[in-house]
Design a protein around this nucleic acid. Structure first.
Length: 286
DNA sequence: GATTTGCGTTAGCTAAGTCC
DNA sequence: GGACTTAGCTAACGCAAATC
């Protein structure tokens, strides 16, 4: 299976049309024909397409599961959609889109979840539909009005908010890496933020699974790799392996140097480095 | 120096769907 | 039936750079 590309987007439309969806559910019905997005310079004629949302959401979540399944297997894990875990603030109504777990169940204990993914993917480029089932590429994301995936500020904020929500749900979440998956680049205004989110440990990365979203310029990676464009499956595998095999711990605080120094002094009395770290983590959370 | 333009963001709305 | 989720669009606003 390949990474995200035009064929994946065309496949989505054709599958949806074959199964149940009408052209009106999937495309803007404009003067010049049916379009996935409103081209720049065109008028939306009052339309705001809603009917595609849940369809593309379901498609990208299943698509991601299929892409990650062999990777999970290689690491001795299962790729599971819609994971529920109350201790992590993931109820049934707002489950994790995708996760690597030790079992294939939807309802999971925190200790069996090894990696959490939040998926923020959409149709990226623009396409024109003509009856009965012809779909033609008409331009990249710079040529239409809509902002796909991670280029939308509210998608970024939603992903960050959901991750924070997990991080503040309790210490059970501190051992689980969180990754946001997209299929577009990010905007300039989020470059510093994604790097800071990675350095501070809140989110381990924003990964675009779309190696070539446009032929013109786009942000491929940020300086600290808070955002990365995934170019091949080997890179994807290595990234996942690193997150799953390193025994990592998230911690955060807002304390005085005096208090911090005290914690370090007490922790450093332990004999081994691991024991020092464990003592430090206990103290900083108390 | 004043005005225009562009960008990023928030608030609010929409339609379709899920869950309880 | 009600609460909530989702992604897209519009209106409005603040701000700063560009232009007149």
């Amino acid at each position: 299976m390949k990474l995200w590309d035009k064929e994946a987007e065309i496949q989505f439309f054709q599958e949806a049309l074959r199964n149940f969806a009408s052209p009106e559910q999937l495309f803007y019905n404009l003067k010049d024909g049916y379009f996935a997005y409103v081209p720049k310079g065109s008028n939306a004629e009052g339309q705001t397409l809603q009917s595609r949302n849940s369809l593309i959401g379901q498609f990208t979540e299943k698509w991601s599961k299929t892409l990650f399944e062999p990777i999970a297997k290689e690491l001795g894990l299962h790729a599971v959609n819609s994971v529920v875990c109350d201790e992590l603030g993931l109820p049934r109504q707002s489950s994790a889109d995708l996760a690597f777990c030790t079992t294939n169940n939807t309802v999971q204990k925190p200790e069996n979840i090894k990696l959490l993914f939040e998926i923020k993917m959409s149709i990226v480029s623009n396409y024109k539909f003509t009856h009965p089932n012809h779909i033609e590429y008409v331009g990249d994301y710079k040529q239409h009005k809509g902002n796909p995936a991670l280029l939308r500020s509210d998608s970024m904020l939603k992903a960050i908010g959901k991750s924070i929500n997990i991080r503040v749900s309790g210490i059970a979440s501190t051992k689980i890496p969180i990754v946001v998956l997209g299929n577009s680049p990010i905007t300039d205004s989020y470059i510093k933020k994604v790097d800071f989110l990675k350095i501070s440990g809140v989110i381990q990365g924003f990964w675009s699974l779309n190696p070539k979203p446009t032929n013109s310029d786009y942000i491929k990676n940020t300086p600290k790799l808070g955002f990365q464009t995934i170019l091949d499956k080997a890179q994807l595998f290595n990234n996942c392996k690193e997150l799953v095999t390193n025994d990592m711990n998230y911690f955060s605080s807002m304390i005085s140097k005096l208090k911090l120094g005290e914690i370090i002094r007490i922790a450093s009395q332990e004999t081994t480095d691991i024991a020092k770290a464990e003592k430090f983590l206990t103290l900083i959370r108390s």
